[in-house]
Amino acid sequence: MTTMTAKSQTASRFVPAIFAAVLGLALITLTGHVQAAALHDAAHDVRHATGFPCH
């Protein structure tokens, strides 16, 4: 890492950062927004408490 320039460090982690953000977005979509009955019932209280639109 110390031999890397700041610019190459920025480039080397751009793709992993986007990957992490998309994965995170997918996760909150699944836990907070997908309306499938089983998911909705299991996550019901969390969705209300976290301020997601629930019903």
Binding site: A17, A20, I28, V46
Partner: peptide
């Protein structure tokens, strides 16, 4: 469990930012 999953999702977005 779903709270942990939700905040892990948020954490992924947060570390990216």
């Amino acid at each position: 469990i779903f709270t942990m999953l939700t905040y892990t999702g948020y954490a992924l977005i947060l570390v990216a930012a």
